[in-house]
Nucleic acid binder design. Structure first.
Length: 260
DNA sequence: ATTGTGGCCTGCCCGC
DNA sequence: TGCGGGCAGGCCACAA
């Protein structure tokens, strides 16, 4: 599913439309339009504005314009397509097909006439938000400092829940969390603030490295432990049987041998 | 305020 | 072969 690294790939792809002026908004799915906007109000707000840059905070993609900022969320099955090019090759948990009826939002431009930006989202868990509240998101997980990371972990909640709390730390999804905790050798059920200084530092280092590795490899599904998140799966580090349970409301897999 | 839970969405996979 | 139930998880509303 799209996590931070997929959204970062989408952002790089979206850079293609920087400098283009929006001619038309395609928003066929009211459900996909968040807050009080409608297809009509989006059209009115965005027609004629020029895209001047792209940003990403966690899993939120931002298209800055000389008018409103366009926020795009991709849920777990959203794909970005620009000028016919895909942002990512593979998206697990999504369909391999790209049925046009799953097109939820699109932009067309004054020039080039055949250029477009489009989101295809089978399960409709994503959405478009005009001028999204960026202050609702914590520091981005890829660039967070060790000091801010420590602040994000100051909680009685389970470690994994806190890693995935977008208000405290933006960008870590379920697969990334399992991978980073596995690499760092930490039990996802630990009380977040029970980590000592060395463990905090270790997790910070492994989380950032995990995100960079997954980005280089081409997706959040390419982690070392991800294919072992199955019944009967064994830890690739020490061969112990992986354990599955719900932690922080999410399916979680970990190795009981080395994750403590 | 913080933490936990359930529901939304729907394609896909499994078992009967 | 067709069908129904369960599953996936990012995000949000709501409860405690």
């Amino acid at each position: 599913m799209p996590e931070l690294v997929e959204i970062e790939a989408y952002r790089r792809l979206a850079d293609r439309v920087v400098g283009r002026t929006i001619a038309k908004v395609d928003a066929p799915d009211d459900w996909w339009i968040k807050d009080d906007n409608t297809a009509r109000s989006l059209q009115r707000a965005l027609k004629g504005v020029t895209v001047i840059g792209t940003r990403r905070i966690g899993k939120l993609l931002l298209l800055d314009t000389d008018g409103p900022t366009i926020g795009l969320r991709f849920g777990m099955t959203g794909r970005l397509v620009v000028d016919g090019m895909d942002g990512v090759d593979e998206l697990i948990y999504s369909s391999r097909r790209k049925d046009p009826v799953w097109d939820r939002f699109g932009l067309r431009f004054e020039s080039p006439k055949d250029g477009f930006l489009r989101v295809n989202d089978p399960r409709r868990l994503g959405g478009v938000i005009l001028n999204p509240d960026e202050s609702a998101l914590g520091p981005d997980a890829l660039t967070v400092t060790l000091g801010d990371f420590r602040l994000a972990l100051d909680s009685t909640a389970p470690l994994k829940a806190r890693l995935m709390d977008q208000a405290k730390l933006a960008g870590v999804g379920n697969l990334t969390a399992d991978e980073a905790l596995w690499r760092a050798g930490l039990d996802p059920r630990r009380v977040a603030r029970s980590l000592d200084k060395d463990e905090q530092k270790r997790l910070h280092r492994h989380m950032v490295k995990t995100l960079k590795d997954l980005d280089t490899r081409g997706g959040s599904h390419t982690g070392d432990v991800i294919q072992h998140r199955v019944t009967g799966g064994r830890c690739p580090k020490d061969g112990a049987q992986m354990i599955r349970a719900t932690v922080g409301g999410r399916t979680t897999w970990w190795c009981p041998q080395h994750q403590r």
